[in-house]
């Protein structure tokens, strides 16, 4: 019996017609394909992309070198050295993130008591040399400067 049904189905191209029905339905609708890189999909305000170190509006770096992000990082991607700066505050002398190790889990962002380390919406980046994958403090602060506006916008959207 099964054999006969199978034979009839293949004789009248039933499977193909079924597929063509969906194609036909979609033909009349707006396509969802995006012309990347000219076009981009919208991102969540909580997207976890490239890292950045933020500053206060007066230009002072936020990071206080508490090393909580280093401690919480499951991939051991962050490494920090600290010292007492001349104004007697605790500051980092080294803040490095190895992007090859990072798994973009966002724990660092959550651990930070001063909202210094954040994960921005940047997801398009590449390295030309092996060592470039390790972001140092200057790089991170630069990205923080560039994306501060977007970051504030994201924070606004995240508010309940």
């Amino acid at each position: 019996m099964n054999k006969i049904i199978k034979f009839i189905k293949s004789l009248f191209f039933l499977e193909i017609l079924k597929g063509l029905k969906i194609t036909g339905q979609k033909l009349s609708k707006e396509p969802i394909t995006i012309q990347y890189p000219e076009e981009k999909t919208p991102l969540s305000s909580r997207f976890r992309g490239l890292h950045a170190l933020r500053k206060y509006p007066n230009g002072e770096e936020r990071c206080i070198g508490c090393k909580l992000c280093e401690a919480v990082c499951p991939a051991l991607a962050i490494s920090i050295d600290t010292e007492e700066r001349s104004d007697k505050t605790r500051r980092t002398t080294k803040y490095e993130i190895d992007l090859f190790k990072c798994i973009y889990c966002g724990f660092c962002e959550e651990a930070c008591p001063v909202d210094a380390i954040v994960e921005t919406g940047i997801f398009e980046y590449h390295f030309e040399r092996r060592k470039d994958s390790v972001m140092n403090k200057l790089d991170l602060l630069k990205i923080g400067d560039m994306y501060e506006k977007e970051e504030l916008k994201d924070r606004e959207r995240n508010k309940l």
Binding site: G65, C66, K67, A71, T82, E83, E84, R90
Partner: peptide, 9 residues
């Protein structure tokens, strides 16, 4: 020692 390391390290 001030500010140069954390105890858990």
């Amino acid at each position: 020692y001030k500010y140069s390391a954390r105890t858990w390290d």
